[in-house]
Write a protein that binds this DNA or RNA. Structure first.
Length: 478
RNA sequence: GGGGAGAUGAGCUAACCUGGUAUGCUGUCAGCUUUGGGAGCUGGUUGUCUGAGUUCAAAUCUCAGUCUCCCCA
């Protein structure tokens, strides 16, 4: 196993292969096979995220994967942003299609075509629909399993409202949902940035995106939520008749948590030099029982293993590893896989009427009375998630820094992830200032920190030297 | 999009410069012996990325393609 801290890239490649999370040998660039151990965790993540989405009033639907070119090109900015990375379907059998179909890189244009047919009056609003699906983008940046591939799996929620205020409230709800699920359940810390105008979602008025940090200090974008305004509703004719009998265009938002990428953040945030470390509810198995067998005591030990397995509550998946491997091999293998809890049972333990419980997160070995196993496991499990979250938060909190000139920014970027700098503006006209930052210190401007209203007083823009009106954050990125 | 490195059984690798029967480890399968931190012995098992060229002869040299990794945009 490689060392996570000093060579994250190698560590990540090794862990995705050794823990059997994916197989890169499929043979189409950027398309990877997601393997059972990863998919079982991602299914759990999906379940938690869908629960959060539905409890906030969204209902599920499934839209087609193919989008006729004509739908796809209705909103000008959207097309400009996505066209370079679209995979096209051009043939049916040997017959060339009259109109080609886009393999959806995102579903706005598929869904909004139908929304225009479904929405008539006030009673149809708000409309909050999500789907769980995969999308395809011919990424030109380097692909990396789970982090960036040309096919990825996500949830996309697309909502319509009667007013701008309601739409803006939805954007805030989306952020709050990310906090509940990604930080609360997955124990991954992040910050929400309002992206600068030159870096917003193609077709949106504003984009708010959650950025986390990889162990090498580079930012990784997790969910983003977009205030679409009326850009799409005007392009697609999504109108309703208001209470005065007047036709109005709806206000829209969309939200896209990419489960495969969030899974990458879970791996990177919690993993260590022995392999994966998973929050308890994300692990495909919560408990593995390793019997330590001598031929003459085999039956007694196995019997005790079964009793202990049966005594553990149904919210935990338990496996007794009775394979022929040696205990040491099993310890290493299940540590690599990130199983949160291990129970070791040998004749010694049977005689003492106890078991040895080992925590994956701390490696701590705890002797537990057989009769108290279930209660104790529940307690330790809670503590594991708390420990993981606290550990991640502590690391993350040190990654925020400040700089006021380019030299200082370059130095701070070496030690921290996000560096706050004074900037002239976050409007389109400042893109050239962001380019200067990119050129000089190879960092991107991620935007302004959402919820922070600090304003630079008497400071100058780090790039152009004009009066600074806003604090923006720079980071190297994936 | 730019630059660099690379591709030999399922995984890692030797042989490549200097063309001539493809090496070892791991895995896997069978059997026996084993089991408190990656067990041992015996036997079986699969391979030169694809295509073209040079040559008596290509894993090795040349060209093209595909894929992977790293760095930069």
């Amino acid at each position: 196993m490689n060392i996570k801290k000093s060579d994250f890239s190698e560590w990540y490649n090794t862990i995705t292969k050794d823990a059997q999370l994916c197989d890169l040998r499929y043979g189409i660039k950027g398309f990877v096979v997601f393997m059972p151990w990863a998919v079982m965790s991602m299914n759990r993540m999906y379940a938690m995220y869908e629960q959060a989405v539905e409890s906030r009033g969204h209902v599920p639907a499934l839209f087609p994967a193919l989008i006729p070119e004509e739908y796809f090109t209705r909103e000008g900015e959207h097309v400009k942003g996505f066209i370079p990375e679209v995979f096209w379907v051009t043939h049916a059998g040997d017959t060339k299609l009259e109109e080609r179909y886009a393999m959806r890189p995102t579903s706005e244009t598929a869904m909004y075509t139908m929304y225009a047919l479904w929405i008539h009056g006030v009673k149809d609003l708000p409309l909050k629909i999500y789907q769980r699906c995969q999308v395809w983008r011919h990424e030109t940046k380097a692909t990396k399993p789970f982090i960036r591939s040309r096919e990825f799996h996500w949830i996309e929620a697309h909502d319509c409202f009667a007013t701008r205020e309601q739409a803006m409230a939805q954007v805030r709800e989306d952020m709050e949902m990310a906090e509940e699920v990604i930080h609360g359940h997955f124990c991954v810390p992040f910050l929400f940035f309002k992206r600068p105008q030159w870096d917003k979602f193609a077709g949106a008025e504003d984009t708010y995106a959650a950025d986390t940090l990889m162990p090498d200090g580079r930012a990784l974008q997790l969910p983003s939520t977009h205030m679409l305004g009326q850009n799409f509703s005007k392009a697609f004719g999504i109108k309703y008749t208001d209470d005065k009998g007047k036709e109005e265009y709806v206000w829209q938002t969309c939200y896209g948590p990419a489960i495969s990428r969030i899974y990458a953040a879970v791996i990177a945030t919690h993993g260590d030099d022995k392999g994966l470390v998973l929050p308890v509810r994300l692990a495909p198995l919560q408990v593995v029982i390793v019997p330590i067998i001598k031929e003459e005591t085999r039956e007694k030990v196995m019997q005790r293993c079964k009793e202990v397995a049966n005594a553990i509550g149904c919210c935990f998946f338990v496996k007794i590893d009775d394979s022929d491997n040696t205990p040491g091999f099993k310890y290493n293998q299940w540590e690599m896989k990130g199983v949160p809890l291990r129970i070791e049972i040998g004749m010694r333990d049977v005689e003492a009427d106890s078991v040895v419980v080992v925590r994956r997160d701390t490696g701590e070995k705890i002797k537990v009375k057989t009769s108290e196993v279930d209660a104790k496991l529940g307690e330790i499990a809670g503590s594991i998630d708390k420990t993981l979250r606290a550990r991640a938060d502590k690391w993350f909190s040190d990654k925020l820094s400040f700089a006021e000139d380019m030299d200082e920014l370059g130095k701070k970027l070496e030690l921290h992830g996000f560096v706050r700098v004074p900037f002239c503006t976050d409007g389109m006209e400042a893109e050239k200032c962001a380019d200067i930052v990119k050129d000089k210190v190879q960092a991107n401007i991620r935007g302004s920190l959402f919820g922070s209203d600090a304003k630079p007083e008497g400071k100058k823009c780090i790039s152009c030297g004009n009066k600074a009106t806003i604090y923006l954050y720079a980071a190297k990125q994936y």
